[in-house]
């Protein structure tokens, strides 16, 4: 499959990328790992006239832990996240997601920024980043904006990233009691259902919970009802956790495809959320 013709240029810095985006307008697309964009271009679902390769921009691929705050450069590859002991300790949910995403070759190439900016409802990171209540740093002509995950992810393949903006970093508070559990699509490796849980515990009981789901809705979403129901539940009490996780996808129009119906997806969202909560509590 051959994509439509385009021009290609490499950006040397974030400012350079913003300038190039300004010059080429809506016809331009940023290219990082390309593992979401290039398949779409090959199927001609996307046909940008200009690709601005940002992978050469220095210092955008670091994982930094600063006290309780974790900051990840947008160009950090999945493989680097999956191999990071610091991430495993500070945000095991994101580490889980990086390790379960795609396959080794995809992880060697794809980036957290690219996967997030793509806004794929079946992608793993959006759910985890929602549960981590992550902050997205985007830079444009007018300077820098900070967006919370809940504002960044909007709809299917749609984020709050402006046409002239570059996503540079994603930051969140350390969440050692967190987990991401995934129901793999047998062919695509995307999430049929992905459940992310970020907890704080008081003794063995859940004090606060943030829960987000991938694969089910038109975009990843927080399960607010479940979050409140989990408060006070003991993480090791399987039945109580399962009861609190009932109706994870309520209010969502769960998606159907050739592998799984909406009803099944919604039911699996409950099961996988309970598993994510139990795993997070046990960490």
């Amino acid at each position: 499959m051959i994509p439509a013709a385009f021009d290609y240029v490499r950006a040397s810095s974030v400012d350079d990328a913003i300038r190039l985006l300004g010059e080429h307008g809506d016809d331009a697309k940023l290219l990082a790992g390309g593992h979401s964009l290039i398949p779409m271009m090959k199927l001609r679902l996307a046909a940008p006239a200009m690709l601005i390769d940002i992978t050469g921009i220095p210092q955008l691929d670091a994982i930094r832990v600063d006290g309780n705050r974790v900051t990840i450069g947008a160009l950090t590859k999945h493989a680097a996240l999956a191999a990071s002991d610091a991430l495993k300790k500070t945000a095991p949910a994101l580490w889980d997601a990086a390790n379960q995403l795609g396959d080794p070759q995809v992880r060697n190439r794809g980036t957290i920024g690219g996967a997030s900016a793509h806004g794929d409802p079946s992608a793993d990171y959006p759910a985890v980043l929602l549960a981590l209540d992550a902050t997205f740093t985007v830079v444009g002509k007018g300077g820098e904006r900070k967006l919370r995950a809940g504002d960044f992810f909007r709809e299917m393949f749609d984020t709050a990233l402006g046409a002239g903006e570059v996503l540079t970093a994603i930051a969140f508070d350390a969440a050692p009691k967190s987990a991401y559990v995934k129901y793999h699509h047998p062919a695509s490796h995307y999430a049929v259902v992905g459940a992310a849980a970020v907890l704080t515990l008081n003794g063995g009981s859940i004090a606060t919970a943030r829960v987000a789901i991938a694969g089910v809705g038109d975009s990843a979403f927080r399960a607010g009802g479940v979050e409140s129901a989990l408060a006070g539940v003991r993480g090791s009490d399987e039945a109580a956790v399962a009861a609190a996780c009932a109706g994870t996808a309520s209010g969502q129009d769960a998606r159907s495809d050739t592998f799984a119906s909406g009803a099944y997806r919604a039911a699996m969202a409950d099961v996988f959320t309970a598993r994510a909560v139990a795993q997070a509590a046990s960490r």
Partner: peptide, 11 residues
């Protein structure tokens, strides 16, 4: 390792 069907030569 990468999948060379999902990398442009220019990259």
């Amino acid at each position: 390792s990468v999948k060379s069907c999902t990398v442009f030569a220019v990259q």
